[in-house]
């Protein structure tokens, strides 16, 4: 279980970082969201993974650490608010700046190396 869990968190983080490094705001927002999912799962695991263990004393033989669950809850709420804000900001940037590039201006198109062929199919 730990291996699978770690793999999932790692994959989410990797995808999140990859997308956050893109140039357009939409992939970046999606990347930030994936990153915050990864972080939530990671925080959850910091109290160790246990099966059949409620975070309540006296309900079962084993109990799990309740604190990471509280932390995850807080992190989810904050992450949600931040994502909402960044989406609105991205839309405003699109409106204000006329494009959706994170730098606010489109990079110049790379010059073609070969002279463009004309005509000729």
């Amino acid at each position: 279980m730990e291996g699978l869990y770690a793999f999932c968190v790692g994959l989410l983080t990797a995808c999140g970082i990859f997308l956050a490094l893109r140039g357009r705001t939409f992939p970046v927002v999606v990347g930030l969201t994936l990153l915050s999912y990864a972080v939530n799962l990671f925080l959850f695991a910091s109290g160790r993974l246990k099966l059949n263990a409620a975070a309540v004393l006296g309900q079962s033989e084993q109990y799990s650490d309740p604190l990471p669950q509280a932390l995850v809850l807080t992190a989810i709420v904050i992450g949600f608010a931040m994502t909402a804000f960044v989406v609105i900001l991205a839309m405003r940037a699109r409106a204000d700046l006329g494009n959706d590039h994170v730098d606010g201006r489109l990079p110049e198109a790379p010059k073609p190396r070969l002279p463009r062929r004309t005509g000729g199919q």
Partner: peptide, 27 residues
């Protein structure tokens, strides 16, 4: 707006890293 896009994205990534750090330390 242009400055805010950079600032917000950077700080959101910073917050994620903060939580990773906290998770490791709590663990």
């Amino acid at each position: 707006t242009q400055a805010a896009v950079h600032y917000v994205i950077l700080n959101l990534i910073g917050s994620s890293l903060f939580l990773f750090g906290l998770g490791i330390l709590y663990g």
